[in-house]
Amino acid sequence: MTRFAITSSTKATLIWLLLVLLTLVTYGLGKIGYSGTFVITIVLASVLIKGHHIIADFMGLRGTEKKWRWLMQGWLLLIVAVIATAYRYS
Protein backbone atom coordinates (compact mmCIF):
# COMPACT_ATOMS: atom_id res chain seq x y z
CA MET A 1 0.00 0.00 0.00
CA THR A 2 1.26 3.42 -0.84
CA ARG A 3 0.34 6.55 0.98
CA PHE A 4 -1.85 7.64 -1.87
CA ALA A 5 -3.98 4.54 -2.03
CA ILE A 6 -7.62 5.40 -1.81
CA THR A 7 -10.15 3.02 -0.35
CA SER A 8 -12.59 1.27 -2.63
CA SER A 9 -15.45 3.21 -1.06
CA THR A 10 -13.87 6.57 -1.81
CA LYS A 11 -13.23 5.45 -5.33
CA ALA A 12 -16.84 4.41 -5.72
CA THR A 13 -17.94 7.81 -4.45
CA LEU A 14 -15.73 9.61 -6.95
CA ILE A 15 -17.09 7.53 -9.77
CA TRP A 16 -20.62 8.22 -8.64
CA LEU A 17 -19.87 11.94 -8.78
CA LEU A 18 -18.49 11.60 -12.28
CA LEU A 19 -21.57 9.70 -13.41
CA VAL A 20 -23.93 12.29 -11.99
CA LEU A 21 -21.96 15.11 -13.57
CA LEU A 22 -22.01 13.48 -16.98
CA THR A 23 -25.74 12.89 -16.64
CA LEU A 24 -26.32 16.56 -15.92
CA VAL A 25 -24.27 17.48 -18.98
CA THR A 26 -26.33 15.12 -21.09
CA TYR A 27 -29.55 16.54 -19.73
CA GLY A 28 -28.30 20.09 -20.21
CA LEU A 29 -27.53 19.46 -23.85
CA GLY A 30 -30.98 18.03 -24.33
CA LYS A 31 -32.52 20.96 -22.53
CA ILE A 32 -30.88 23.56 -24.73
CA GLY A 33 -32.31 21.64 -27.61
CA TYR A 34 -29.18 21.71 -29.71
CA SER A 35 -28.89 18.94 -32.17
CA GLY A 36 -26.28 17.81 -34.60
CA THR A 37 -23.11 15.85 -34.79
CA PHE A 38 -21.36 17.81 -32.07
CA VAL A 39 -23.99 17.20 -29.40
CA ILE A 40 -24.44 13.60 -30.42
CA THR A 41 -20.70 13.05 -30.16
CA ILE A 42 -20.51 14.51 -26.70
CA VAL A 43 -23.53 12.62 -25.43
CA LEU A 44 -22.38 9.31 -26.85
CA ALA A 45 -18.88 9.85 -25.51
CA SER A 46 -20.34 10.41 -22.09
CA VAL A 47 -22.37 7.23 -22.48
CA LEU A 48 -19.13 5.39 -23.21
CA ILE A 49 -17.40 6.83 -20.16
CA LYS A 50 -20.33 6.13 -17.90
CA GLY A 51 -20.88 2.65 -19.22
CA HIS A 52 -17.21 1.88 -18.96
CA HIS A 53 -17.11 2.79 -15.29
CA ILE A 54 -20.31 0.99 -14.42
CA ILE A 55 -18.96 -2.15 -16.05
CA ALA A 56 -15.42 -1.94 -14.69
CA ASP A 57 -16.02 -0.52 -11.23
CA PHE A 58 -19.63 -1.01 -10.20
CA MET A 59 -20.15 -4.39 -11.77
CA GLY A 60 -16.60 -5.21 -10.75
CA LEU A 61 -15.23 -6.53 -14.02
CA ARG A 62 -11.88 -4.82 -13.50
CA GLY A 63 -9.34 -7.53 -12.83
CA THR A 64 -11.44 -10.39 -14.14
CA GLU A 65 -10.47 -12.49 -17.10
CA LYS A 66 -9.95 -10.64 -20.36
CA LYS A 67 -12.73 -12.43 -22.17
CA TRP A 68 -15.40 -11.12 -19.79
CA ARG A 69 -14.13 -7.58 -20.00
CA TRP A 70 -14.01 -7.81 -23.76
CA LEU A 71 -17.50 -9.17 -23.87
CA MET A 72 -19.03 -6.43 -21.73
CA GLN A 73 -17.01 -3.45 -22.88
CA GLY A 74 -17.29 -4.76 -26.41
CA TRP A 75 -21.06 -4.83 -26.10
CA LEU A 76 -21.08 -1.21 -24.95
CA LEU A 77 -18.74 -0.10 -27.68
CA LEU A 78 -20.68 -1.95 -30.33
CA ILE A 79 -24.03 -0.52 -29.34
CA VAL A 80 -22.69 3.02 -29.14
CA ALA A 81 -20.89 2.62 -32.46
CA VAL A 82 -23.99 1.34 -34.20
CA ILE A 83 -26.08 4.15 -32.74
CA ALA A 84 -23.47 6.65 -33.87
CA THR A 85 -23.56 5.25 -37.39
CA ALA A 86 -27.33 5.34 -37.54
CA TYR A 87 -27.37 8.95 -36.36
CA ARG A 88 -24.40 10.10 -38.38
CA TYR A 89 -25.94 9.31 -41.72
CA SER A 90 -29.45 10.35 -40.96
Binding site: T26, Y27, G30, S35, I40, V43, S46, V47, I79, I83
Partner: peptide
Amino acid sequence: WIILFPLVYIIR
Protein backbone atom coordinates in the same frame (compact mmCIF):
# COMPACT_ATOMS: atom_id res chain seq x y z
CA TRP B 1 -30.78 2.92 -18.66
CA ILE B 2 -27.54 4.85 -19.13
CA ILE B 3 -27.85 4.12 -22.84
CA LEU B 4 -31.63 4.23 -23.06
CA PHE B 5 -32.01 7.70 -21.58
CA PRO B 6 -29.85 9.67 -24.03
CA LEU B 7 -30.95 7.49 -26.94
CA VAL B 8 -34.69 7.94 -26.51
CA TYR B 9 -34.92 11.25 -24.65
CA ILE B 10 -31.96 13.35 -25.75
CA ILE B 11 -30.08 12.86 -28.95
CA ARG B 12 -31.69 14.02 -32.15
